[in-house]
Design a protein around this nucleic acid. Structure first.
Lengths: 205, 205
DNA sequence: TGTACATCAGTGAACGCGCGTTCACTGATGTAC
DNA sequence: TGTACATCAGTGAACGCGCGTTCACTGATGTAC
């Protein structure tokens, strides 16, 4: 039964992670320091070292949590997407996650993170596989590798451009509509274009 | 005739900018401090304040230089792109710029920059307009707004995913090929798909 | 051509800050007998 | 049931660091007369 004497915190590990998340969302990556985390957890500056080897370890833990939350967003959008519309809904959720948690999204993707962190590499692979799976189901018979990369890049780019205010993001609805349109454009563009321009087209197999 | 006594530096403003660029490319954003810049320029820690109001001003100057260099890359790829292939070449240049100058690209796009910096807003608008122009020329008759955003997002996303090592970037050639394929996929996907899946398609106008 | 003076571009000492990390420590917990 | 002891999770002082920024200053430059 923890939580009594409060000398032993009870679950400082989780408390640190929570504090780190809060600090990150409030002050961005630079606000996420071990000392600040300790302060917020109401604990001495060195206590977190019992649970995290160093600052990097804590940041990685935060990122890992972020990947799980992202998966949650995508899953909530559609548990087993299998049509282009489903895929668009998932794309909307991806971008919305980024806009709901900007600094977290940056830590997950834009931090100059060394490729050595297997935790991250694994998380990335999971996302990549997930996207490939959707594309494969939504468009059976199409070479999934190239197309799924394209889809991911498109959605990821939209997320970042919106995150950095490079696109009109006046309201969530505007963003959603734009994302949906972009994803659909990926699959309808050449049909529309066929009659108007000289887009190089491959014959359907 | 400067460069003589070396008390007056000659062109400290430019020297600071150069030093800042070097430090950025070497140590990333966190290595770009005013003191380090002064050190590298061989000047007292406070000398840069003669030319830059504060650290932010220097960083913005670096970013501005980055936007110009990016424009140079794109222009070098094709001075006046007007076909899908031209556009693909420009896209390749965009991604290559990011991979040639990772920390610079991050400062330009991924820094939690306040939207108040008109310098950046302007630079962004220039890029946006540029892309719209290309898309318009390459695909006349197509609503350029939505499509150009999609193109930019796709390319931007590829740049970032490659930058963060989330995609196979073993050699520059692999990257180039992938970018080219992705851009072309954007315009050929639905033709390929038409016979296989139920992609919602709009009638050509 | 020479001098007086304003302006400009640097200097260097100093401030206060928060950081990551180490170290020896101590109070609480739980287990073995 | 009670005691001895190992283990664990915190404490708190201290280190050295680099940073942004201020301030009063001084040496160099160039212009007016």
């Amino acid at each position: 039964m923890p939580q009594a004497g409060a000398y032993h915190h009870g679950d400082l590990r989780a408390a640190c992670l929570r504090a780190a998340r809060e600090l990150l969302e409030e002050d961005g990556s630079s606000g996420l320091s071990l000392r600040a985390v300790a302060r917020r957890a109401g604990v001495s500056p060195t206590a977190p070292y019992r649970h995290y080897a160093d600052r990097d370890a804590l940041v990685s833990a935060v990122a890992a949590q972020g990947y799980e939350e992202l998966a949650g967003y995508l899953d909530a959008a559609h548990p087993s997407p299998s049509t282009p519309d489903d895929l668009a809904a998932v794309a909307v959720a991806y971008v919305r996650f980024a806009l709901d948690h900007p600094p977290l999204f940056r830590v997950m993707f834009a931090e100059p993170c060394d490729p050595s962190s297997e935790e991250r590499v694994k998380a990335t692979a999971v996302i990549s596989e997930y996207v490939r799976g959707i594309v494969h189901r939504a468009f059976p018979g199409v070479a999934p590798d190239a197309l799924s990369t394209t889809v991911w890049a498109l959605v990821h780019g939209l997320a970042f451009l919106h995150l950095d205010g490079k696109l009109d993001a006046s309201t969530p609805e505007v963003v959603d509509t734009q994302v949906r349109a972009a994803v659909h454009a990926l699959f309808t563009a050449s049909t529309t274009l066929a009659g108007t321009a000289a887009a190089p087209s491959e014959p359907a197999k």
